[in-house]
């Protein structure tokens, strides 16, 4: 029995209208990601990999073509439906961590759970996730500015896992970290993949891409090698 791909892109193009002329960020891109895969999308700067990530992450919609997440097309979704998808289907891990500076590490991870359930986490899930990524109870009460880059990225991973998403979408997850921290973060992602998680990672670093089981190379908005 063939399972529905987690992510499907059919002839996806994205054009940004500019005063100097249209910019074709993506050109008729086709590919899919199956459940449980660890996929690295690689490409040089300006190749369209960030645009691709935004499309897969339901942060942007294509100019033409169709994107399906868990078999559902995002083209016809309203803003609220896309937001709901981002909250419950996708776990974002950003290069700059993107934690909410007003909240503690614990609250950052608890936030998606509150968005989903409308109340504070009355289980041990938030604490368990933070412990799993290696944060101590004391560090959980720190604000992002009081944590190191590596610790912030661990919090970011815990937050991404909070609502048990279908897949993790990582944008240069080690881009702001030193090599030791990078390795630790990649080991966490590898462990998560080993536990059955689908991981989609955008990177320009070949060393980071080596952790993936499948590498998609994008250049000038087109997939050139798989």
């Amino acid at each position: 029995m063939n399972s529905i791909p987690v992510v499907e892109l059919h002839d996806v193009s994205k054009i940004y209208p500019m005063p100097a002329g249209d910019v074709h960020a993506l050109n008729h891109v086709n590919f899919s990601i199956q459940k449980g895969e660890f996929v690295a999308i690689m490409g040089p700067s300006g190749s369209g990999k960030s645009t691709l990530m935004n499309m897969i992450g339901c942060l942007d919609v294509p100019t033409s073509g169709e994107i399906k997440i868990n078999g559902k097309s995002t083209s016809e979704m309203t803003d609220d439906e896309l937001t709901l998808h981002r909250r419950e289907t996708i776990g974002f891990i950003f290069q700059k961590f993107n934690l909410i500076s007003l909240l503690t590490a614990y609250e950052n991870v608890e936030y998606p759970l509150i968005l989903k359930h409308g109340h504070k986490d009355d289980t041990t899930r938030t604490r368990d996730l933070l412990r799993m990524v290696g944060l101590t109870d004391g560090q959980m009460q720190h604000t992002p500015y009081e944590l190191s880059g590596g610790q912030q990225q661990r919090v970011s991973i815990a937050r991404a896992l909070a609502n048990d998403p279908t897949f993790l979408l990582c944008d240069e997850p080690t881009g702001n970290l030193d090599s030791k921290m990078s390795m630790q973060i990649m080991e966490i992602l590898t462990d998560l993949h080993a536990q059955g998680r689908t991981v989609v990672m955008v990177t320009h670093d070949p060393k980071t891409a080596e952790y993936a089981e499948r590498i998609v190379i994008i250049k000038d908005g087109e997939i050139v090698n798989e």
Binding site: D80, T83, R87, I100
Partner: peptide, 9 residues
């Protein structure tokens, strides 16, 4: 950030 992690408009 809030919007990207699922906060409605």
């Amino acid at each position: 950030i809030l919007r990207s992690i699922g906060t409605y408009r």
